[in-house]
C-alpha cells in the first residue's frame, strides 16, 4: 500500500512534484502517466527512498519515507529507467549479487526460480551484454523481484523496446500482477497502461486526475453509442435528440452517434424509437475513445 500526503519535491527553484496526495491499495496496478519532465521519476525516487521530499509525507508498505528508508528499500522492488545490469557478468551472477544485497535467505534457490520464470535458465552463464533489450529488461524486473517485495515500481518498463520485446515485458508484468503485488508503473505508453492498470493517475507536476481507464474515458468524453443503420436521415437524428437523456446526436454517413449518460438504461428506448420510425438497424456499438485521447485532453487542459 502506498499513501502520500502533499508530497512535494523542489530542486532549487524548480518544483518537480507539487502536493501529491494519493492512495494506492494493496494489490493494485497503478499507472502513473505524464509527459517528459512531469516529475514521474522524481516521485518514484521519493517513494523508493532514493531522494527525500522537500515537504509532505508518504508511507510505503506501512513504512514512513525519511524515517524507515532501509525498511522501505527492503520491501520494494525498483526497475529504473534503464536496466543498469552489469554487462560483463552472467545473468546468474547479476541476480546473485542483488539477492545478497537484498538479504535473500536462499540465494541460489531464488535466482534459479526467477531465471526459470524468465525462461533463461539455460542461458544463465551468458553475460548480460549478449541478451536482447527485452531480455535485459526482464532480467532487471526479475532482479527487482528476488526479495519478493510487496510493492514493485516500474519506471518506463517498455521504453525503447521494439513491439516484440515490449510484448515480452508486458506479458511478464501481467504474470507478476497475478501474484497480487502492488505495482506502480510510470509510463508514456498509454496502450500499455490501458491493458495493465486498474487505475491510472495523470500527472504533470501535480496530480490531474486518478481513476480507472474506463471511468476516465467516460468522465472526459461522456459515453457514445453508435447506431449503424441501412439508411439514416436528419429526421431520425432529430427524434433521437428529442430524448431527454440524449445530450447530443450526430449523423455520420449512415450512422447516428449518440452521447448519452446511461446507455444500458436508455438504449432500449432509443432502439424502439428508431424501429418505430422505420429505421433498419444493422448493429449497435459503443464508441470507445482511446486512453490517448483522454490523456491528451487532460494534459492540454492542464
Amino acid at each position: 500500500m502506498i499513501t502520500t500526503q502533499n508530497l512535494t519535491k523542489k530542486f532549487d527553484q524548480i518544483t518537480a512534484v507539487e502536493n501529491l496526495s494519493l492512495e494506492i491499495p494493496e494489490g493494485e496496478v497503478f499507472g502513473f502517466l505524464g509527459p517528459n519532465g512531469a516529475g514521474k521519476t522524481t516521485t518514484v525516487r521519493m517513494l523508493t527512498s532514493l531522494i527525500s521530499p522537500t515537504q509532505g509525507s508518504a508511507s510505503v508498505n506501512g513504512f514512513q519515507i525519511g524515517e524507515q528508508d532501509i525498511d522501505i528499500r527492503r520491501s520494494v522492488g525498483l526497475l529504473t529507467e534503464t536496466p543498469g545490469l552489469s554487462d560483463n557478468l552472467s545473468a546468474e551472477r547479476n541476480l546473485e549479487i542483488y539477492a545478497s544485497l537484498y538479504e535473500v535467505g536462499d540465494i541460489k534457490g531464488q535466482v534459479e526460480k526467477y531465471l526459470r520464470f524468465l525462461g533463461v535458465w539455460d542461458r544463465r552463464m551468458d553475460v548480460a551484454a549478449t541478451f536482447s533489450k527485452g531480455m535485459k529488461q526482464k532480467l532487471a524486473i526479475a532482479r527487482a523481484l528476488l526479495h519478493e517485495p510487496r510493492t514493485l515500481f516500474l519506471d518506463e518498463p517498455t521504453a525503447g523496446l521494439d513491439p516484440e520485446a515490449s510484448r515480452l515485458v508486458r506479458e511478464f508484468i501481467l504474470e507478476i500482477k497475478q501474484q497480487g503485488r502492488t505495482i506502480f508503473i510510470c509510463t508514456h505508453n498509454l496502450d500499455e497502461a490501458d491493458r495493465l492498470c486498474d487505475r491510472i493517475g495523470v500527472f504533470k507536476t501535480r496530480l490531474l486526475v486518478v481513476d480507472s481507464p474506463i471511468t476516465l474515458r467516460r468522465q472526459v468524453f461522456g459515453r457514445k453509442v453508435v447506431f449503424h443503420l441501412v439508411q439514416a436521415d436528419q429526421a431520425l437524428v432529430d427524434k433521437i435528440t428529442a430524448h431527454p437523456h440524449v445530450s447530443e446526436a450526430n449523423l455520420i454517413d449512415h450512422k447516428i452517434v449518440v452521447t448519452i449518460d446511461d446507455p444500458e438504461a436508455h438504449n432500449p428506448e432509443l432502439i424502439r424509437i428508431l424501429v418505430r420510425e422505420g429505421a433498419d438497424i444493422q448493429f449497435i456499438g459503443e464508441l470507445r475513445r482511446s486512453l490517448e485521447d483522454v490523456y491528451l485532453q487532460l494534459v492540454k487542459n492542464a
Binding site: 528499500r73 525498483l78 529507467e81 543498469g84 545490469l85 542483488y98 532487471a140 527487482a144
Partner: peptide
Amino acid sequence: VNRSLEPLLATPIT
C-alpha cells in the same frame, strides 16, 4: 555509464 548505480542504491545497502 552503465547506469547501474541507481538500482544498487535502491537496495537496502547504506
